[in-house]
Amino acid sequence: MTDHETFLATARRVIELEARGLAALGATLGPSFAAAVDLILAAKGRVIVSGMGKSGHVGRKIAATLASTGTPAQYVHPAEASHGDLGMVTDGDVALVLSNSGETPELSDIIAHTRRFSIPLIGVASREGSTLLTQADVAILLPQAEEACGTGIVPTTSTTMTLALGDALAVALMEHRRFTPDHFRTFHPGGKLGAKLLKVGDLMHVGAAMPVVAQDLPMADVLLEMTRKGFGVAGVVDAGGRLTGIVTDGDLRRHMDGLLGHNAGEIMTRAPQTIAAGALAEQALALMKERKITCLFVVGASGAPEGILNIHDCFRAGVV
């Protein structure tokens, strides 16, 4: 067997062992999981996640996932907690403490703190009868599963199960709270996630920035408005303020002969493509690409223009 074949065989063995651990976790979850969700839902403060070593790294990720999905959470390092950071764990919080063995010495102070001040404690460990699970208000016992390292000493399968358990808690909480993409965007304004969830209303130009003209406005004045606003278009509204048409560069070229002898209503393209402010910017970009246009007017329920969106607004915001 070549080195590459050996590497692949090892990788497949690790993934298979960890997959077995996840399957065992799913099969053994019971009332304690539901009790943990209830405890978190009842908390008026935050979920304080703590763990040492690899459990601590997993705990940081769990805290971040909870916080980004509508459950306020914070990771507290157990060693730092013993030197003043216990002040971060307050009445109204609920503690989620992770330890494979359930006997991690560095966790003793944070466990004692929760007991002293009646702060609800959710313990996650793989050793039944361990200090952590015995002291916890809700004890979640991880199933016995072989570590993927082959020696049983490197946290691999156990940390994967703990991470999956954290994800399960976060998703159960967000589904109960009916956490929507709108809520998600509030906590993810940056990067591709934020751009993907941007609304048209977040990017559109409004008020005096909109190139809007009346139907009877002479084309000489329409050209001035188009030049001033710089979108290459002008929206045309009727006496009631409803968008009835749009004047584009193409319309100007098609009516070049005697253009200045007309008004906006005579030159405009009727029933232009529009979009709502609540639509995703991603949808607006797809529409502009499909129609081979560079601008969309944003209209409300009354048909009046509320804003204008340029394709470059989408690109600048990272919508692709």
Rank of each mutant, 00 (worst) to 15 (best):
8 L>P: 00
10 T>P: 00
23 A>E: 15
30 G>Q: 04
31 P>F: 00
34 A>G: 05
35 A>C: 04
38 D>Q: 11
43 A>Q: 08
44 K>H: 12
50 S>A: 12
55 S>Q: 11
59 G>P: 07
61 K>Q: 04
64 A>W: 05
64 A>D: 03
71 T>Q: 08
72 P>C: 06
73 A>V: 11
74 Q>N: 06
76 V>Y: 01
77 H>T: 10
87 G>V: 10
88 M>Q: 14
89 V>Q: 05
90 T>Y: 01
95 A>I: 12
96 L>N: 08
98 L>Q: 12
100 N>K: 15
103 E>P: 04
105 P>E: 13
107 L>K: 13
112 A>C: 03
114 T>V: 07
122 I>N: 03
124 V>H: 05
125 A>N: 07
126 S>C: 12
129 G>K: 08
134 T>A: 12
139 A>I: 08
140 I>Q: 03
149 C>P: 11
149 C>K: 08
149 C>E: 07
160 T>K: 10
168 A>Y: 09
175 E>A: 11
180 T>H: 02
180 T>G: 00
183 H>R: 15
185 R>Y: 10
189 P>V: 01
190 G>L: 00
191 G>K: 11
192 K>F: 03
194 G>Q: 11
200 V>Q: 05
201 G>E: 02
201 G>D: 01
202 D>R: 05
202 D>A: 14
202 D>G: 06
203 L>W: 06
206 V>R: 15
208 A>D: 14
208 A>W: 02
214 A>Y: 09
214 A>G: 13
219 M>D: 05
226 M>I: 14
235 G>K: 05
249 D>T: 13
249 D>L: 15
250 G>T: 02
251 D>T: 03
252 L>R: 12
258 G>C: 10
265 G>M: 08
268 M>I: 10
269 T>R: 12
271 A>K: 15
273 Q>F: 01
276 A>S: 14
279 A>V: 07
284 A>F: 03
286 A>C: 01
287 L>Y: 00
293 I>D: 08
296 L>F: 04
304 A>E: 13
305 P>G: 01
305 P>H: 06
307 G>K: 03
310 N>A: 14
312 H>L: 12
314 C>P: 02
